[in-house]
Structure formats: structure tokens, C-alpha cells
Design a protein around this nucleic acid. Structure first.
Length: 470
RNA sequence: GUCCCCAUCGUCUAGCCUGGCCUAGGACGCCGGCCUUUCAAGCCGGCAACACGGGUUCAAAUCCCGUUGGGGACGCCA
């Protein structure tokens, strides 16, 4: 396939949601796979609901997940003259007409038709009025074919046949002189030479309305691929009540963009039994042949599992960088004096398999990035007892003279204390852990001491001993 | 209501086009065990699905028809 050109065309009426990202992702993958062009187009012809903030949120979301575009962002409101000109051409050619029915009248007729169980489509009463220059408010409608069939050969769903009798004379120009979606989308897809329209399932019914417009204006009709919907756990279309649907919310919840992308691509696409893909693999393997035609339920547990996998396998330095914003929320100062030995990336390998998100990981970092340690009182009462105090003290004294905190040098010290005091590792490790981290759970005790460094280790043990009632 | 789409474990899916290799495979989650200085991770094992009814065929998860169920669209929104 040569000169593949695709586009992602969101309307800026809110944040970029999960479904939108998946649509963008499939477009992007298809473009990259074929060495084609990916266009970002902002469909903002509804000036009442479109906002600049939403455009910014879309751009930010796209950047976060790493979907870069080759052209755009193009705004339809920058091209209004073009749509008006094309509408005029259709009018002049007798392929469109002025309609003076008011929105209120149309609303009433729709309701009546529905009540009678009839189709609620426009009855075409202005079609043959031949209005050339309306004096009051008027909208322009496209004359849809009323005979025959419109056949869409969808790349995912196969052949879909629509009887043209169900087609409506769509409004293409509103009475405020702004084009409607179904018109501007056709003009843009045609003039931007879009070869493949890849969009959500919810647009299948728009396709037979758009195809005749391409034909009426003599444009080549692009190929279509309609992606299955993403559903919530109750099988209803994914929406806010199912939890977070904004991409940026996933960033805040501590997900890695590559994990989200991997999860989203597997929602409707597969390559045998493989679950984890690099971006390069996705670009190589992506094809509509393997796209599911049925809807998929969004599953947070699996996303979380994938995120954990990416955290476990990722480059520690990369993860440490992504983690910084989460740590600063807890008072961490990247340039401050309280740092783990070896830097943040030294901690990552020891906490990564304990955290499913960066939010969780930040919590595991707490003992290493705060001073003094935050003590869990219940843990202190249970483990920092008068009985264990002498052993902790003995351990502190002996480890204060070792010259490294490696497992090899620390082990004999611990063993000597255990043997002399008749303790098992389990009885000694927990009090030590609580003394060092303020918690009953942490990475391995050796690692904790290494990350803390000798001075902080000794200080914390001594602080713990001091708070033990004698 | 009208039109369109869809239908394999709870969920994501492989298999379906090109019927036999399917006593239906993998993954998430769940349950049990192992490992163990905590918490995890890891390893091993288990539970769990072809929506239903008719055809076609020697043979159907796979092909055809119907039923049921689910989803989407019916705006001077996109």
C-alpha cells in the first residue's frame, strides 16, 4: 500500500478519553506500519462546546502516550470558507437545497413520528420548494439518494448494506452558516487525501450518509475501518461512571504510557497468545485482519498487571525519572540532602516488584526519602519491645565498625547476634525492619540498610532504641 | 420503534475465512501449594466458555437459517 494517509479527528469538547486514545493508536499504528502519514485534525465546528483548553488536553494526552502526528493539529474552524464554498457548489448543482423548517418544528415532527412507530427521518418537505435566497434563517440540506443501496466494505466488519430509503437529507450548513460534522468531515477527508478512515463503531451509521456526499462532489471514497467500542464492566459504553476515562487521569494514577498503550492495543487486537509488545513489534505486526469485530470490556485489573510488568522490566533510570513527580508530592526534594544511597534509580530494583503503579511505588520510597522516619505506632508497640532492645543495640555496635554494608559483611554480624541472643531471623528482622523503615514491610533488610547508608542506619536503630520503654 | 453491528471461560482473547490436529489453547483475576527475615515477586497446580434451536456434512466452535441476548445510531452534537 502506498501513500497511506489517516487521521484522528477528535472534537474538543472535553478531555481526551480512553476510547479516543485507542482510535488514535490504531490510526497511528496503521500509518507507521505502512510508512504513511498521520494527521491530527480538530473537529471544532460546534463553537458552543469547543474550547481551547480541550484542544490543549488532547495534545497533552497524545504526547503523553507517545502518539506523534505528521500534520496538524488542523482546526476546522480555520477552514470555514472552504466548507461554505463547497456547500454553495452543491446548491448550484441542485444537489443541496435550503430548508426553512425550524429546529422546534423538526423536534415536534420527530416525536410524532416516533410515537407512531415510524422512521423519524426528515420528511423532505423543503426539498422541492426551490428556495434560492432565503430571507430568514435557513439551513442547507444535502439531497440524499432515496433509491438503491449504499454498500460499505468495511475493513473490519466486512460488507455492510444500507437501503437508501433509510437515508436522511442531512443538514450540511446550519442556519448560523457553520457546517455540520457530516459535511466537514467529508470535505476534509477528501481534500486531505485521507485513504483510510479509521474510527469508532459508533460511526457506522454515518458512513452511508457520507459516501453519497463524496460521490456527489466527485471525490474518491476512502476505505473505512470501524473499531469495536470499549465498554464498561456493565457492558454499557465506557463513561465517567465506570471510573477514570481521561488519559491524563491514568498518568496521575501512576500508569506508564507504554503500559496503557499495550493494554489498549490488546482491546480488540491480538497476535496469537502474545500479551506484551514493544512499540516496534506493534508497528510491525499491526493489521486489521486481527482486529476483533465485537466490543470489549475495559478491565482495570489487567491494565494494572501490565503496568506492573512494565515497571518490573523497565529501565530503572527511566522509571526513577517518571517517579519524581509522585515523590515530590510527598515532600521529596530532588536537590535536598535526604537521598537514598546510589540515587533514586538504586531503589527502583528493590521496590519494583512490590508496586503495580508509580503511586504505590512512591509509597515504598518513603523510608528512603524522608527524615526522620515516619513510625507506624502499632508496629512500634508490637516489635520495638524491651526484650529486643539489647539485641538491636548489640547489632548497631557491631555494624558500626564494618567497612561495607554488603550482604557478605553484614550476614556474619547478624548471625553473631542471633546466636548469642538465641534468636531466629524472623524474631530479629521484623524489629530491625520497623526500626529502619517505621513499617512492618519493606524490601529485604540488607537492601534497606544499603539504601539508607551506614549513618542513617545507625541513627535509626539508635532512635528506635531510645523510644523503647525500659 | 426504525436501521446497523456483535455473540468462545467473570474479563481480554487464540481457534472460525481455508470444517476433522479442539477431551477448545493463552492471559488477567480467583482458589490451593512451594519458596521465604516482612511485603511482594517467582514457580507449580486448580476452577472456569463454544448463547439457544434448526439445518448442511461421514464430521461443525468453525458453513447456512432462525431465535434470544447485548451494543450502537437515529440532533441546525461530533
Amino acid at each position: 500500500m502506498t501513500n497511506v494517509r489517516v487521521r484522528f479527528a477528535p472534537s474538543p469538547t472535553g478531555y481526551l478519553h480512553i476510547g479516543g486514545v485507542r482510535t488514535a493508536l490504531f490510526n497511528w499504528l496503521f500509518a507507521r506500519h505502512h510508512g504513511g502519514t498521520f494527521v491530527l485534525r480538530i473537529e471544532d465546528t460546534d463553537r458552543a462546546r469547543s474550547t481551547d483548553e480541550a484542544i490543549e488536553a488532547i495534545v497533552q494526552g497524545m504526547r503523553w502516550v507517545g502518539l506523534d502526528w505528521d500534520e496538524g493539529p488542523l482546526r476546522q474552524t480555520d477552514r470555514l470558507d472552504l466548507y461554505r464554498e463547497k456547500a454553495k457548489e452543491l446548491l448550484d448543482q441542485g444537489k443541496a437545497y435550503w430548508c426553512v423548517c425550524t429546529p422546534e418544528e423538526l423536534e415536534v415532527r420527530r416525536k410524532e413520528a416516533q410515537a407512531k412507530g415510524e422512521s423519524s427521518k426528515y420528511d423532505g418537505r423543503c426539498r422541492d420548494k426551490g428556495i434560492t435566497s432565503p430571507t430568514g434563517p435557513a439551513a442547507m440540506r444535502f439531497k440524499s439518494p432515496q433509491e438503491g443501496q449504499t454498500i460499505v466494505d468495511d475493513l473490519i466488519k466486512g460488507k455492510i448494506v444500507f437501503e437508501n430509503t433509510v437515508l436522511d437529507d442531512l443538514i450540511i450548513l446550519r442556519s448560523n452558516n457553520y457546517p455540520t460534522y457530516n459535511f466537514s468531515v467529508v470535505i476534509d477527508d477528501a481534500l486531505m487525501n485521507i485513504t483510510h478512515v479509521i474510527r469508532g463503531d459508533d460511526h457506522v451509521n454515518n458512513t452511508p450518509r457520507q459516501v453519497p456526499m463524496f460521490e456527489a462532489m466527485g471525490y474518491q471514497v476512502p476505505k473505512f475501518a470501524h473499531l469495536p467500542m470499549i465498554l464498561g464492566s456493565d457492558k454499557a459504553r465506557l463513561s465517567k461512571r465506570h471510573g477514570a476515562t481521561s488519559v491524563l487521569a491514568y498518568q496521575e494514577m501512576g500508569y506508564l504510557p507504554e503500559a496503557l498503550v499495550n493494554y489498549l492495543v490488546r482491546l480488540g487486537w491480538s497476535h496469537g497468545d502474545q500479551e506484551i509488545f514493544t512499540i516496534q513489534e506493534l508497528i510491525e505486526k499491526f493489521s486489521f485482519e486481527n482486529v476483533q469485530s465485537s466490543a470489549a470490556v475495559f478491565n482495570h485489573e489487567k491494565l494494572q498487571w501490565l503496568n506492573a510488568e512494565y515497571i518490573k522490566q523497565g529501565d530503572p533510570q527511566h522509571i526513577a525519572t517518571l517517579l519524581v513527580p509522585f515523590l515530590t508530592q510527598h515532600g521529596y526534594d530532588p536537590n535536598g540532602p535526604v537521598q537514598p544511597q546510589g540515587g533514586l534509580e538504586a531503589v527502583v530494583p528493590h521496590v519494583r516488584e512490590r508496586a503495580k503503579t508509580l503511586v504505590e511505588m512512591a509509597d515504598w520510597f518513603m523510608p528512603f526519602i524522608t527524615e526522620p522516619v515516619t513510625m507506624d505506632e502499632a508496629a512500634a508497640i508490637k516489635f520495638l519491645t524491651p526484650a529486643i532492645a539489647p539485641s538491636l543495640k548489640k547489632f548497631a555496635e557491631r555494624m558500626s565498625v564494618v567497612d561495607s554494608l554488603s550482604k557478605e559483611t553484614l550476614d556474619p554480624v547478624i548471625q553473631s547476634v542471633l546466636e548469642e541472643d538465641g534468636l531466629k531471623m524472623g524474631k530479629f528482622a521484623q524489629p530491625l525492619r520497623v526500626a529502619l523503615t517505621g513499617r512492618t514491610f519493606s524490601p529485604g533488610i540488607h537492601e534497606v540498610m544499603q539504601l539508607l547508608g551506614k549513618d542513617r542506619t545507625l541513627h535509626r536503630i539508635n532512635q528506635a532504641i531510645q523510644r523503647i520503654p525500659s
